[in-house]
Design a protein around this nucleic acid. Structure first.
Length: 569
RNA sequence: UGGGGGGUGGCCAAGCGGCAAGGCAGCGGCCUUUGGAGCCGAAGAUCGCAGGUUCGAAUCCUGCCCUCCCAGCCA
């Protein structure tokens, strides 16, 4: 993969910079101190290929790959593909794309749980021989009944004490496809009265005559998560197997299998998954949004999916920064989405070239400007980074400015253009509004202004000041564009995400047409990110063509004027 | 009313017995050819509650309250 500044995580161990601290770092550092695993750090990111990755996964990805980077270890990418009924190649492809996009590289360590089906089968036979596993012919319903409840102990299956020979023969039949789906399962023989339901003889294998994306029809028995995951970790020499809190109750089982087999024992460590305000991050709800058409797809720029935020224009470095800042802990929490937006702005402020674009155009005619003159004004590409250079922006007699930058009868604190008032056009001239033209409905359709030739570039030789600087675009030279404005998907900061009809923000998407942008944007490519001065950060959408430019508003600039207006209410 | 977790300013989160970091949000001000950015400043915490141990407790002990997870042949 290509390594660019934009896409390379900076986690090299350094002395002074404040290293992230968390209970996981503490565990790892203690392990290194005591020489556990020879001081090695090996992690993995283990997605199930049954959906698209979202910002919550990014937290796990940054954590796992980040720890490996910090401690000179390795992080594998492993697909947990043990359920052919739900998994598809499409998801595998999107996941690898997304992890790479986030800036992480698993080199030659791309693995699949299905790589280990053979080994898992042998180990299962080993457990059967040790009297630690048995084939159970109870139906699914019966197994549930026998499992007991949270407060009542379970009871043992009548098949629990079959002989080793019988179990071996039956398991062989399961593997050979001689039995029907659901006819029986292989179970671990542990403890039916354990207060931890996971220990009440958990199912290890079920029969599924299903085509697997990678192993095809080679297998008709598939391992359950608990049986596959820890053993896969062990095979790969994982030292710290990091997962989310809901697997905490599975840890005793994870440890039990590894101990019975006498194989390398990774340490499972659980952390709290990410929740974000104004959105949902559960796979089920995200699927509904897509399948029921509330959004245009998995990559709709309003979606919290990696593909969605990528299309929206969020830089991967901003996501990484966000993941560093939210920390890792065991307390369930919901992070304010404003922190994510802050990280996006901070990255884009430094890296996005500035351009001018008018979203809601108001025509301005400079009456004392020569009819056919065109001047090329010098504009700085990024005041935060001189290395980004400068460009020329054409100026002429007829311009467009932002409609909201003019008020006929301005309130107190409104510094922008008004009748008789002088303001600066960015990188161009001071202009003064001399007349307001309206249509028959009284709506302002054009402004007449004069300019001061002495102020070329934006400074007055006599030292006089103006209170506002407006962005603008030359009417003759401007490119027409469509601009899509986005807002939070859900109105409520803590949506249940079930009653979509009422919970979704009806204004989460606003499409603006007939916007005008400066001509330099003609060569912009898909994904290119810009700051439209005074408005926000935008990128070129996938739908954009040279004939029909389309921009997404990634995130607006902070807007203190809007705040003042709010306070006035 | 079984088991396993968690409760530190509005939101995250450090802290690991010596006297509550930091970030986001919010609030002032400075600066500014983006009302952006940047800079400066102030404010904000009975550390879930109640006891106890200790010279000293957010940190240790006890009890209580609240909250999250678990009864898939999903992961």
């Amino acid at each position: 993969m290509s390594k660019t500044t934009d896409n390379t995580p900076d986690k090299a161990p350094d002395e002074e910079a404040s290293r992230p601290s968390s209970f996981i770092h503490d565990i790892i550092e203690e392990d290194r101190r005591t020489g556990k695993n020879d001081g090695r750090v090996q992690t993995r990111f283990p997605p199930e290929p049954n959906g698209y990755l979202h910002i919550g996964h990014a937290k796990s990805i940054c954590l796992n790959f980040g720890l490996a980077l910090e401690y000179g270890g390795k992080c594998n990418l492993r697909f947990d593909d043990t359920n052919p009924l739900k998994e598809e190649q499409e998801y595998i492809d999107s996941i690898t794309t997304d992890v790479h996009w986030l800036g992480f590289d698993w080199e030659d360590r791309l693995f699949y749980a299905s790589d280990y089906f053979g080994q898992l089968y042998e180990w299962a036979v080993q457990l059967i021989k040790a009297g630690k596993a048995y084939v159970d012919h109870l139906t699914a319903d019966e197994i549930r009944e026998y499992r007991g409840t949270l407060t009542e102990p379970g009871k043992e299956s009548p098949y629990r004490n079959r002989s080793v020979e019988e179990n071996l023969a039956l398991f062989e039949q399961m593997k050979n496809g001689e039995l029907e789906d659901g006819e029986c399962v292989l179970r671990a023989k542990i403890d039916m009265v354990s207060p931890n339901l996971n220990m009440r003889d958990p199912v290890m294998y079920r029969i599924l005559h299903a085509e697997h994306p990678r192993t095809g029809d080679k297998w008709c028995i598939y391992p359950m998560y608990d049986w596959a995951h820890g053993q896969s970790d062990s095979i790969e020499g994982i030292t710290h197997s990091i997962c989310t809190l809901e697997f905490e109750d599975h840890r005793p089982l994870y440890d039990w299998f590894v101990e019975q087999l006498g194989i390398h024992a990774p340490q499972q460590i659980e952390f709290a998954r990410l929740n974000l305000t104004h959105t949902v991050l559960s796979k089920r709800r995200l699927i509904r949004l897509v399948k029921e058409g509330y959004v245009s797809g998995w990559d709709d720029p309003r979606m919290p999916t990696i593909s969605g935020i990528r299309r929206r224009g969020y830089p991967p470095a901003a996501i990484r920064d966000f993941c560093d800042r939210i920390g890792v802990a065991r307390a369930n929490s919901t992070v304010d989405i404003q922190l994510l937006e802050h990280c996006v702005r901070q990255d884009l402020n430094l890296h996005a070239p500035r351009v001018m674009g008018v979203l809601d155009p108001l025509r301005v005619v400079i009456e004392n400007y020569p009819d056919d003159l065109v001047e090329e004004m010098d504009a700085i590409n990024n005041p935060e980074d001189p290395e980004m250079g400068a460009r020329k922006v054409p100026f002429s007699k007829v311009l467009y400015i932002e409609r909201e930058d003019f008020m006929e009868d301005p309130p107190k604190k409104f510094y922008r253009l008004a009748p008789g008032r002088e303001v600066r056009l960015r990188y161009a001239y001071f202009i003064t509004c001399t007349d307001v033209i309206k249509d028959e409905n009284g709506e302002v359709i054009e402004l007449r202004c004069t300019y001061d030739p002495e102020t070329r570039g934006g400074d007055a030789p006599d030292g006089r000041r103006v209170k506002a600087t407006l962005h603008w675009v030359s009417a003759r030279h401007a490119l027409e564009a469509e601009v899509r404005l986005y807002d939070h998907l859900f109105i409520d900061p803590f949506p249940a995400g079930d009653d979509l009809e009422n919970e979704l923000n009806p204004d989460s998407l606003e499409v603006l047409t007939h916007c005008y942008v400066e001509p330099s944007l003609a060569d912009a490519n898909h994904g290119d990110r810009f700051q439209f001065e005074r408005q926000g950060y935008f990128n070129v959408d996938l739908d954009s063509t040279p004939e029909n430019l389309v921009f997404n508003r990634t995130v607006p600039l902070r807007d203190t004027w809007a705040k003042i207006q709010q306070q006035a209410k």
